[in-house]
Design a protein around this nucleic acid. Sequence first.
RNA 1: GGUCCCAUCGUCUAGUGGUUAGGACGCGGCCCUCUCAAGGCUGCAACACGAGUUCAAAUCUCGUUGGGAUCACCA
Length: 479
Amino acid sequence: MKTRTRFAPSPTGYMHIGNLRTALYEYLIAKSDGGDFILRIEDTDQKRYVEGATDIIYKTLKRVGMNWDEGPDIGGNYGPYVQSERKLLYAEYAHKLVELGGAHYCFCAQKEEDKDVDEDTPEAHIKLKDPCKHIPLEEAKARIAAGEPFVVRQNINKKGTSVFHDVVYGDIEIDYDELDEGVLLKSDGLPTYNFANVIDDHLMQITHVVRGNEYISSTPKYNLIYEAFGWTPPIYVHVPPVMKDAQHKLSKRNGDASFQDLVTKGYLPEAILNYIALLGWNPGDEREIFSLQELEKCFSSERLNRSPAIFDITKLTWMNGCYIRNLSAEEFHKLALPYYNDLPQTLDFKALSAVLQPRVETLGQIPAETVFLAQVPEYSVELYINKKMKTDADIALKALQLVLPVLEKTIDWTNENLFETMKKAAQENEMKNGQILYPVRIALSGLETTPGGATELACVLGKDETLKRINNAINKLSK
RNA sequence: GGUCCCAUCGUCUAGUGGUUAGGACGCGGCCCUCUCAAGGCUGCAACACGAGUUCAAAUCUCGUUGGGAUCACCA
């Protein structure tokens, strides 16, 4: 049987890093086995639906090169691939499941939201027995026919322990009486995730289901549905979450960086993808830099990790630097250009870009220290002035002249606290190490300066002296 | 609270009974260099705890502690 995996996001906002990683693993499981990767949109919760979110999903996947073989936009043999368009299908199967004894109709009002209930008390977690379960089927049907609102709830009739196998976690045992008889078909006629994912995964012939490990405890419920229909469950691959710190998941809700945020900051999609691939997976050897194609070759779900991984922006930054340094001068400049225009308050980046263009061409390489694309302007100016000044005085001069007005505007000359602190730090460092902080030293030389250096110089010398020295440098270069 | 899951340097991890517990990021030092960065070399740094099994345990078992998940007409 051909391997088929699916990425099934809800269009509720930006693409989270954890989501993207799940998609990656789905993609890799399929592609490392010559299988198909399917995109399915799970939009059964109309309350959480966010306009444009689907587009973000498309763009993100395309941006990192994870192309899907079937999906809402390109179709396929198992469509439609948007759950809201499959509404009738779910209803049909839900009624069928009732006939098969796997579910029942329920007419209870929606449970009120608990307010002042202490989450930790046992009482807060007592599962309600559903009185509707005992309504005779004929009576229930009559009430539905009469127009009474209803939901379809799952029947958990089994006793004892359920055992299922997970690729990552191994065999897992859960008692049936831990399971609640959850809603499968909501009163608005749309299915819940618990039902839709089973129906769709079966109908779309999905072989491997990859999802967050928060679904582990409800997996037996899904197996019960498969069983009631006489279907074979897929292979389960539950993955641990990506964490922000030891206690908290990475989540957009808390303002954690999304894929798009990272890209905007100058992280290359390839680097982000490479980094998150290694967050919970490793190839078994010591390689760390992988293109998507290379990952396809060596990926194995057996090497997925069981414990959560903390997202470390520092290491991503390092990896991003690796990717940026590998760019050709042309590629680099093309990618960096938007950032020149993006920071109008600090420098005239258009002019600066024109100044820097020949430098990249001359050097034929990217400044080694360039880590973030978004930092390109600052780094470039600094490096340029420092390194090329002597041989390329003319261009350096132009860069300096661009920097000067910025200094006057951006440095808070009145912030005495800042200046005092930095001055003190510089002096302490001088006493301790016998040398002045590098940027200050450069600045003091009066010949070379940089935005950063000038700031520190200003801390030590004050505004007038700083500007005087920079002007001297410009004059000297003009000759 | 019930149930399920997890536990190696600060972080990502290798490790499936015998290793000086390896690598990467970060951090410190040295080299290179007109500075920084990059590169090279090097240093600091971990098996949560306690029993047990065994000649031998990071690895197997049990317990403890700590953390996470779940108990929605959200996914």
